[in-house]
């Protein structure tokens, strides 16, 4: 069974960069797939990878990570403008971040229009 835990942006909004990473990583280490509303900052994403590496041990082998950023999939200048306005108003709340423990999620395949989450259970079937 795969457990997906939704984390609304309001739950991490007031936390420091490291606090956000700790919270998300702690959930992933419980073998749950994290579905975060919004995105981390770019430097926080790099910090998440760094912290993940620091925590790898016999049980925890790392994460699979994917971020959907609507402004990157904008089809024309008007859409880009719209999303940059939303971004300016609401910060990183738009989009979606998926963090899956690599013990459960084998890979996340993405192209601009879809995301495929391949779990290890699915592979065994």
């Amino acid at each position: 069974m795969v457990t997906i835990q939704f984390v609304p942006y309001t739950e991490i909004e007031g936390l420091s960069g490291l606090g956000k990473i700790r919270k998300l990583l702690n959930i992933a280490k419980l073998n749950k797939i994290v579905l975060l509303q919004g995105r981390l900052k770019k430097e926080e994403e790099a910090e998440l990878i760094k912290t993940t590496m620091e925590e790898i041990d016999k049980k925890f082998k790392g994460i699979e990570l994917a971020v959907i950023n609507p402004s990157q999939t904008a089809k024309d200048g008007m859409q880009k403008f719209k999303y940059s306005m939303i971004n300016a108003l609401f910060g990183d709340t738009q989009g979606l971040t998926i963090i899956g423990p690599s013990s459960i999620v084998k890979s996340i395949k993405r192209d601009p229009n879809k995301i495929e989450l391949l779990t290890k259970e699915a592979r065994k079937r």
């Binding site: 770019k42 790099a46 996340i108 395949k109 601009p112």
Partner: peptide
Amino acid sequence: PYSQVNVTIIGN
């Protein structure tokens, strides 16, 4: 090429 690692490195 769409792996998040690539996107994160380039974004940083």
